[in-house]
Design a protein around this nucleic acid. Structure first.
Length: 234
DNA sequence: CCCTGATTCGC
DNA sequence: GCGAATCAGG
């Protein structure tokens, strides 16, 4: 396989969209993960959170308290003209949202969507045990201290405009149908997005697909189409 | 083991 | 330019 215009374009899009090299290789077909990475580098697009290069600590913990206060040795680092990154010079800490690669096709009904605040209920302090064994609490313990409101929504912006009007992984919550549409990793992959059948993770239509009564052997009907449009043919 | 991206180096 | 082999971290 050769790197045609379209293949390079697809590689670039997916790479910048956060897909892994494996996914991209799979998607393109005929190339290995290494080929994709190699090509990506040659194209000049890298700079993505790498597991092997995650840390690059200046130094701190290494020096166990130098005798006198270090006379401030600010590392003279005016090397700028060397190789300025073509894109964002320093994506702070937040990587571009990873593609919904491992999006579970059938999450448990009680699966928490991204957006539930784990609010720990503060236990009332037990002061003494009253007659009969019931617990008694002090007058000051009636009101639990108000837990600090946890910061909400730590989600990066939607990674790519192509799925702007689709129901993305980030849009999932307890009220909308999470039935997957299309194949994960592909640009138009999204979720159903309909209002759920109350108490279920899917809308009424997809509940019908997800929950099939088990018939006795020999009376089985051919299985309905699976999510993702069925197993991928490779 | 699996995965990830980075790098090297013979082709 | 290409990509398998290798490296190294999670």
């Amino acid at each position: 396989m050769s790197w045609t215009e379209e293949r390079i374009e697809k590689l670039t899009k997916m790479w910048e969209g956060g897909s892994t090299a494996s996914q991209i290789a799979e998607e393109l077909g005929g190339v290995s993960r290494n080929a994709v990475i190699g090509k990506a580098h040659r194209l000049g697009l890298k700079a993505r959170p790498s597991p092997v290069k995650a840390n690059e600590k200046p130094d701190a913990a290494a020096a166990p308290a130098p005798k006198v206060a270090k006379p401030a040795a600010p590392p003279p680092e005016p090397k700028v003209a060397a190789a300025p990154r073509p894109v964002a010079p320093a994506a702070p800490v937040t990587p571009p949202a990873p593609a919904p690669r491992a999006a579970a096709p059938a999450p448990a009904p009680e699966a928490k969507a991204a957006g539930d605040a784990p609010t720990p209920a503060p236990q009332p302090r037990i002061v003494s045990v009253g007659p009969g064994g019931f617990l008694r609490q002090g007058p000051g313990d009636q009101q639990a201290p108000i837990p600090p409101a946890p910061p909400r929504r730590l989600v990066p912006a939607r990674p790519s405009p192509e799925i702007a009007d689709k129901t993305s992984l980030l849009d999932l919550n307890d009220r909308i149908c999470r039935w997957p549409m299309g194949h994960p990793g592909e640009p138009d992959f999204h979720f159903c997005g309909e209002k759920v059948n109350p108490g279920f993770p899917y809308c009424v239509e997809h509940c019908g697909r997800a929950y099939q009564a088990q018939l006795p052997r020999g009376h089985r009907r051919p299985p309905p189409p699976m999510p993702f449009g069925g197993p991928r043919v490779r």
